[in-house]
Amino acid sequence: MKYLVKSSVAALALALGANAAAAEGKLVLYHWFEYMPQEVLDKFTAETGIEVTMDTYDSNEAMLASLKSGAIGTYDLAVPGDYMVAIMGNQGLLDTIAEGELKNKANIAPEWADPAFDPGRMSSIPYQWGSTSFAVNRDVYSGNIQTTDILFNPPAELQGRINMLDAQGEIMAMASLHMGIPQCSSDREQLKALNAMLQDAKQHWSSFNSDTAKEVLVSGDAAVGQIYDGFAAKAREEGANVEYAYPVQGYVAWMDNVVLLKDAPNRDNAIRFMDFLLEPENIAAVTNYAQYNAGVTGVEAFLDPDLASKPEKNPHANAGPGIFIEVCDQQVQAVYDQIWTNLKK
């Protein structure tokens, strides 16, 4: 009897082990939600026999937190945004790709080949780039939406019907644009004003949610949503009468990148996957699905012809500048964290 129990427990433990990731022929991907089409992963598996496991996150900060709380060494690749690549590099969370390891490295579009957040592309390859601003339901509000006032000082029709992304970086950058102050400003008066402005704006917001940023617009639960351009296009195509704004004060531009993580359990497979994503046809499939832009040359031939003409992709003539989120130093970051906590208390 005892033997029976023991051996069945052992068998079950084995069964579990067989199911765990990181065995031979595996690849463990840590990725944004609703961003990578399953077909692309299936194609990679068909070509290489490598099975891909994917976990998802909903903000750069959440991904960093998870990696730092012990997940590093269990994932092979992650997909951080520009500023987060720099942070992860500083934190020693990235592995270096040796010269010549990536066969398709030359495919990287020249303008993305040597970015400030990863000089020389030592640990990353471009994934997608796009913008973050907000979309407004035109059934609810027909006035001018090309201003950050929509988020931070909204007209009466929109008050209490705004969903913000649950992401510190995006909100702080947008708020700085709204106030016309530099990002990561260490000027005390500016920081105080930033804090006060956000406190005041919060009363008009109904929720903080990144995952449902699209869904709340489609369902009508929110009339304004801070959102990424491609996600806004999807919301519109799913039936929401929303218009994506390019405010005159400016908007957030970003580039997501596939990075090789330190202590990746399947490093070789990870490199193969990066090479796979540098092939125009494959990265174009992601672009067609997520409706952003690829950073690989020769991708145009594979793109959905409608994509370029979508309103979300075409800033109007008066649109402000697209700015990348900056990495603050530790002192300013501490103040930012304090402002963030004040915002959510």
Partner: peptide, 23 residues
């Protein structure tokens, strides 16, 4: 609740899984 008004549980969660990262 729309994650806009912290309760203790969400405050704690935020320190480990969210933006704050203050263990």
């Amino acid at each position: 609740g729309g994650a806009k008004n912290f309760m203790i549980g969400s405050l704690i969660e935020e320190q480990f899984k969210g933006n704050a990262g203050n263990w």
